[in-house]
């Protein structure tokens, strides 16, 4: 029988290092068929989980990026109006009228599938990633609850479409807005934190094998210390990987060797003016010295 460690190993095979808590939550989500809500700061690898899961399960990843004002027409389905209009003209000239036209206009051929509808109509269960659900508004959450509750979508003109397969659903949020209790209760939950030193080093080795081991340890130590500084936007895992790639590309072998290069490479880690100002050359050198 599958267990949490199977999930952990499977994801590791795709270059994703999952914590034990996260692996258990994913395993339960797969075993019980419940959606999984992932929360955590930006850049800790929430979206990446879904990508790794899809790659491991060898299935499609269907992604729905949420934003304010997202509605059913963009998330579930929409009719192809242009085609419908053309068809109405053509059919009228051909002499067809009434209910025959209607039946034809509201058929599969004129239906535009959006991510949610597409996800429940796949022959092989896909991974459905609903990214940044807290950016969508409350009304959309209500639509979503309905779809997640019984995996069926009702289109008034066509009837109810039931799920062919149950997608594995992963929702991510990073606290733009408080989610409704109803949604939280439908989902299993895992909080993803910044990885600890050992985990982050494992991630770096899995994703950027061209970085030498001792430079890798320095990079991870440096980024871990940097996160402890009072920054507006702490660098995430993706930023750390960019930083490592930048240093490797610049041919740096030791963080302390060239203050100018290090300062330039910080562009991959610090993304606001205030943060750049806070980490001056002296601060960066002190952190690099500690990491070395």
């Amino acid at each position: 029988m599958a267990s949490a460690s199977t999930v952990q190993d499977g994801l590791a095979g795709q270059g994703y290092v999952a914590s034990a808590d996260l692996a258990m939550a994913l395993h339960l989500s797969l075993a019980l068929g419940r959606p999984l809500l992932l929360e955590g700061a930006a850049g800790v690898g929430k979206t990446e989980v879904a990508r790794a899961l899809a790659a491991w399960k060898r299935c499609e990843l269907i992604r729905l990026q949420c934003y304010e004002g997202l509605d059913a027409a963009q998330a579930i389905y929409e009719w192809n109006y242009q085609r419908q209009l053309l068809a109405i003209r053509a059919l009228a000239e051909a002499g067809e009228t009434g209910s025959a036209v209607e039946a034809r206009l509201f058929s599969e051929a004129y239906l535009l599938e959006r991510p949610l509808l597409r996800a429940i109509r796949q022959p092989v269960a896909p991974v459905l990633l609903i990214d940044e659900i807290d950016r969508a508004d409350e009304e959309f959450e209500a639509y979503l609850l309905e779809v997640l509750a019984d995996f069926q979508i009702t289109i008034p003109e066509m009837g109810t479409l039931r799920a062919v397969t149950r997608p594995m659903v992963i929702l991510t949020a990073n606290g733009t807005r408080d989610l409704s209790d109803a949604l939280r209760r439908r989902c299993l939950y895992a909080h993803v934190d910044y990885p600890d030193r050992a985990t982050e080093l494992a991630i770096l080795q899995a994703r950027c094998s061209q970085v030498a081991a001792d430079l890798g340890a320095q990079i991870v130590g440096f980024v871990q210390d940097l996160r402890k500084e009072a920054l507006e936007k702490k660098p995430g895992v993706a930023e750390m990987l960019d930083f490592a790639a930048a240093l490797a590309g610049l041919g740096v072998a030791d963080l302390t060797e060239d203050a100018g290069v290090l300062q330039a490479a910080l562009a991959t880690l610090l993304k606001t003016q205030a943060d750049r100002a806070a980490i001056s050359t002296e601060v960066a050198q002190r952190l690099a010295g500690r990491a070395a």
């Binding site: 029988m1 267990s3 949490a4 034990a20 808590d21 258990m24 939550a25 395993h27 339960l28 989500s29 075993a31 019980l32 999984l36 929360e39 606290g175 209790d181 939280r184 209760r185 299993l188 939950y189 895992a190 909080h191």
Partner: peptide, 24 residues
């Protein structure tokens, strides 16, 4: 579904019972 052992039980209940970062 979680398997045996205290760590597994703890993690399984954690995934089910928590709903936000404070709970976690």
């Amino acid at each position: 579904a979680a398997g045996v052992g205290e760590a597994a039980v703890r993690r399984a209940l954690k995934a089910v019972a928590c709903g936000c970062a404070e709970d976690w």
